[in-house]
Design a protein around this nucleic acid. Sequence first.
DNA 1: GGAGCGCTGTACCGTATGTTACGTATTTTG
DNA 2: CAAAATACGTAACATACGGTACAGCGCTCC
Lengths: 275, 275
Amino acid sequence: MISSIAELIADRVGTMPAGERRAAQTLIASYPMIGLKTVAEFSAAAGVSSPTILRFVARLGFQNYPEFQSSLQDELAAQLQSPAIRTLNPPSPGGSAVSPVLEATLDNMRETFRHLSDRQLDDIAARLADRRGKTFLIGGRFTDPLARYMAAHLAVIQPDVFHLAGQESMWRDRLIDMGKRDVLVIFDIRRYQDSLVRFAEKAHQRGVQIVLFTDQWLSPIARFARHVIAGRTAVPSAWDSSAALFVVAETLIGAVTRQLEADGARRLREMEGLR
Amino acid sequence: MISSIAELIADRVGTMPAGERRAAQTLIASYPMIGLKTVAEFSAAAGVSSPTILRFVARLGFQNYPEFQSSLQDELAAQLQSPAIRTLNPPSPGGSAVSPVLEATLDNMRETFRHLSDRQLDDIAARLADRRGKTFLIGGRFTDPLARYMAAHLAVIQPDVFHLAGQESMWRDRLIDMGKRDVLVIFDIRRYQDSLVRFAEKAHQRGVQIVLFTDQWLSPIARFARHVIAGRTAVPSAWDSSAALFVVAETLIGAVTRQLEADGARRLREMEGLR
DNA sequence: GGAGCGCTGTACCGTATGTTACGTATTTTG
DNA sequence: CAAAATACGTAACATACGGTACAGCGCTCC
């Protein structure tokens, strides 16, 4: 059942020619505001000509542009009247169930943050913002991209940030550079990787401060960790979800940035200048 | 401080003559929808003449009617971007610094999925699950980890999945391997990278199907893309958030897995056996 | 009770908007 | 590879929309 123009578009976008598809995508991207403006503005925003916009709305089944706009307005009015009904895609029965996954993911995030105090995050941020030591990041098979993501951001606002990539033997050699003042951020969720556990243990023996991102069942690395962040990972899917950990990582990046504000801002400007 | 037109009206309705007051009351009664329609409709709804409506908006301080409408639209857009659903999320008391970011992130996800139909995701998943072609993934400065994350998962359930890493010249050389049956997944959010745009254009010229993950302002790559996923990225932080795109990526991974169920399951078991 | 002022609607005007026709470019098909 | 079909943009067009001048009416205040 198609009840909104957005769904109507999603339903037919596959059968549209390139220009009209651009119109569709532009509308969806800032739905539905652009559709309330004039044809000229719409066409300019989409980078196509006016007739293409008109053909686009015609393909959606509208007689003319004003009729299309009225329809959008009615939709908006209905939305505004009952804000609670703003659940988007009615859960498509039977078929691909994306909503349950989304719901579970959102729940995971709320739960994850419920068990995470600001104090804890600030402590970790302070540790990471401490310029006297270096920061190393590493992750497991599926979580290493999270380590990369965090490293990419931290490297912008402070020096001495290293992502440990490649073979196990490669990072083991980096142990020699690590000491008491340094921080090692590890991402490890089920199934926990032996190689990471071994690495964490050796780092711990050298006095390195370990910050562990793991799932609710806790990687064995938790034994060696100074700080443990346990994120919910369960979703109705074949895979575990790292989304909650991802959001914690982003939050942490933000917190570190705030603490380094003065330094970081200067550094960030400098970097922009270099590009 | 007056921040909305509704407040502005409430502030001045006392000083208005009868006709204009009726206009004001009519607008407030179905705020703001009537204001988005034509002067003629507005005047008919209020039971006054067109000039009265125009005098009404003039008294509010607007130069002309279109300017008044634009202002209403901007207000609406702002309202839609940060949904009033906040009431559903327990507003964490105390006023910690992390909650606003989390709230914004959750909102971003809801908004992102609101504009994303199951149908669209299924279409993309089908394209990715099509075993006749290869899958390439690449991302920008901060989003490349998302490409890696997706590649890591997809590579488990099907062959011919390649993450394009390293120097620009490296991936440019891979273009030779790409053709009409192949899919290129690109992550590109502000600030958009020229190198990626150039790469996307060349791939597009070779007939490669492009799936673009971008922000709500749409990377220029959208021109060449077969499918565009526009995620919300704005959060009260120094950085943009890729969390919404991350969740979409996870959802997509799940959808592809489901479509490849038979094949994928066998392959997954085989891989587990190899470890 | 009369004069002045202010508010409102009718009628008309210029213009910006949506619409259509047509020629060119691009893609698809045999 | 050729030919047909489709898609797209330029430019001309008609309409309907916002804007304005002006006259009528009611209200208030001498």
